[in-house]
């Protein structure tokens, strides 16, 4: 039986899992929509891994993404890391001399600056998710084309129109306006890509030194229109890794492998069939009224979080 490393990235829009025995050879990769239900997404992901690989022996599990706390408790992860580190590790594995990582996901966009293999600076989008995948999704749906067609369509543009990319709401009204004026769909889609790239570079990339090689990853990297817009704006040919949409999970698995564990604390593939649930309540202990989340397996409380004082989270012995 093969010894595999698992990487799990529970993001806002997608939940990704990967498995490898050695990082050069990815054995399985799963990309799922989270649909706001991370527990189900993780179980479904693991189920697909089992379908692809059989019940392999797990040597280590790394988790990342905004749902990493939940994923860690649920699976018994060995390494829990933030997305910046995970993405940087993955990108430097694929392109060892990478100096810039552009990552655009569902609700987050990140820019990571590396020099000599070390993260020296990073930035994430601030309070607004204007330039991220969710917006592209929504616009594709509004126009009535699938997100897969979005990129190829945008590439056909002859004369991209200028769209205000600062705010998703304004961009949308701008797009509708341009449509009404009779601009072609291709030109509008390409214009939208350019607007998003401009927004990204002005906000996230503000003042950062973007040097080649640039790796472009995250779900949005699938969009050829976005790649082309980046190439033009940066005057650098961006590299989209083969596993662009699971790089976070890949990085998490790499970190688990780097940890050189004696044995993994993975709780086993049996957890696919177990019943997990979570619910929240407002603690009445003081005026802070913390929103505490309780995570259960069956009846047993596995973990609690969200309290400021530790009254609930410390009360659980896992």
């Amino acid at each position: 039986m093969k010894k595999i490393y698992l990487g799990i990235d529970v993001g806002s829009v997608s939940t990704n899992l990967i498995a490898f025995a050695s990082p050069e050879e990815m054995l399985a990769s799963v990309y799922l929509r989270t649909y706001g239900q991370p527990i189900q997404a993780i179980q479904e992901g693991l189920k697909q891994i089992v379908t692809l690989l059989g019940k392999a022996e797990v040597a280590g599990v790394g988790v990342t993404g905004s749902g990493r706390a939940l994923a860690a408790v649920m699976t018994g992860a060995d390494v829990v890391k933030n997305e910046i580190t995970a993405h940087a590790v993955a990108a430097s594995f694929v392109v060892p001399d990478v100096q810039t990582v552009v990552e655009i996901g569902g609700q987050d966009s990140k820019l990571i600056i590396l020099r000599q293999g070390v993260v020296t600076d990073f930035a994430m989008n601030t309070v607004c998710a204007a330039g991220t995948g969710s917006f592209l999704d929504q616009q594709a749906a509004r126009i009535g084309i699938s997100i897969e067609e979005f990129g190829p369509q945008a590439l056909k543009a002859k004369n991209p129109v200028r769209i205000a990319g600062r705010c998703a709401v304004f961009a949308e009204s701008d797009m509708i306006h341009k449509q009404q004026q009779g601009h072609s769909l291709e030109d509008i889609l390409a214009g939208l890509c350019e607007a998003l790239v401009r927004n990204y570079l002005n906000n996230v990339g503000k003042g950062k030194e973007i040097l080649a090689p640039v790796v472009f990853q995250g779900g949005v990297a699938a969009n050829a229109g976005m790649c082309q817009a980046f190439n033009r704006a940066l005057n650098i040919e961006v590299i989209v890794p083969k596993q662009y949409n699971v790089m976070g999970a890949f990085g998490a698995a790499l970190l688990a492998r780097e940890a050189k564990l004696e044995s993994s604390s993975f709780r086993g593939f049996e957890l696919i069939d177990r019943h997990f649930s979570s619910n929240g309540f407002d603690c009445q202990g003081c005026a802070n009224r913390c929103e505490v989340v309780e995570f259960r397996e069956g009846e047993r409380v596995l973990a609690r979080w969200g309290d400021r004082c530790g009254k609930w989270s410390n009360a659980v012995a896992v």
Binding site: S66, K81, N82, E83, I84, T85, V118, V119, T120, D121, F122, M124
Partner: peptide, 15 residues
């Protein structure tokens, strides 16, 4: 906030 802080504090010692 945690993600940003964690990533920042991760980066500092290496750098």
């Amino acid at each position: 906030v945690n993600t940003r802080l964690e990533a920042f504090m991760d980066m500092l010692p290496r750098r």
